[in-house]
Design a protein around this nucleic acid. Structure first.
Lengths: 166, 166
DNA sequence: GCTCGGTTTACCGTTGACGTAAACGGAAAC
DNA sequence: GTTTCCGTTTACGTCAACGGTAAACCGAGC
């Protein structure tokens, strides 16, 4: 897809003065690599805010936040990029809701978008809670094992003292 | 390593009547594949209790539990198999402590093994707590976003009512 | 003895999530 | 203007964690 040099394929919808970040900046700020950001774009997970005529990607702060969000879903919840894509579809709903708000869309439509986003958010929170519960359970097991080991330790220490001076 | 047919390379240390599980059984009970169990053995993560002369692997309940433990470390904490190997090295210390207990080893040695196992266990619990904290933080963010969305929803609903009957 | 299901070793293939190198072209700084 | 970055595309490489398959082997039941 060649573009007339100098033009932007995606002009800012609403002409606001958000800073345009180049790929290297986003990469540094998120401790990722440019390759990763391009890969995420390749699989449809992250879309830069704009492409300059030269092909250069430009991101907005919203995308940078999305990046950190993706990382959290990856590291903390262990989701695959495909699953994350699924989860983020809801986030996109929220984004559409924001656009609708700025475009003064009819209230019923905005309410529907909000409801969708809310439901998706609820599902995500449920997922997190479930995982938290499981990890807590696992933690309790580990702590309990530690307790048993400490008890045994005390027993052995008592044995030792009794053997030392009967 | 060829073995005299009919003999077991690893006779039970203490002749107890634990059931010997074949690889397929362990696989079914843990919802894994035999291939995975062999792979884990290949990288030194899981060692079957015994090899029969034919080469057939035989597992004990302890190994089956180790398998589920590994899965938890993998899924819940997102550790790599290498990291898990590291964590389990400490668990093996505990196992040596048990053997030492059964073998009536000198108390000081048993105490040292116990202390080692305790320390490793503490590190694991720390790790889990850290992860729990981070996930909790992430959860709070999500919940907060949901709250903001609900607030906006109420606003919009109020707008709607006001527009309906002014 | 024969079949049949489960197991073995051995080797190659795959998938996800990137890394790396080459060849090139604007962008920024001087 | 001219270096020097920084960025682009395209293509191939890598690493972990397995999956698949072939060919041989074992033990149980008929």
């Amino acid at each position: 897809m060649t573009v007339v040099p100098g033009s932007e394929t995606l002009e800012p919808i609403d002409g606001r003065d958000e800073p345009r970040l180049r790929i290297g900046e986003v990469a540094r700020e998120t401790s990722l690599t440019a390759r990763t950001l391009r890969y995420w774009e390749e699989i449809g997970l992250l879309r830069p805010f704009a492409h300059r005529g030269s092909g250069e990607r430009l991101y907005s702060v919203a995308e940078r936040e999305r990046v950190t969000h993706i990382r959290e879903l990856q590291d903390l919840l262990g989701l695959t990029l495909a699953e994350i894509q699924d989860v983020l579809a809801s986030e996109d709903t929220l984004e559409r809701a924001r656009r609708a708000a700025r475009a003064d869309a009819p209230t019923p439509r905005r309410l529907r978008l909000l409801a969708d986003a809310l439901e998706a958010n609820g599902r995500l929170v449920d997922r997190i809670n479930e995982r938290l519960a499981r990890i807590n359970e696992f933690r309790d097991e580990c702590v309990e094992r530690g307790d048993r080991m400490r008890a045994r330790q005390l027993e052995l220490q008592a044995d030792q003292r009794r053997a030392a001076r009967p």
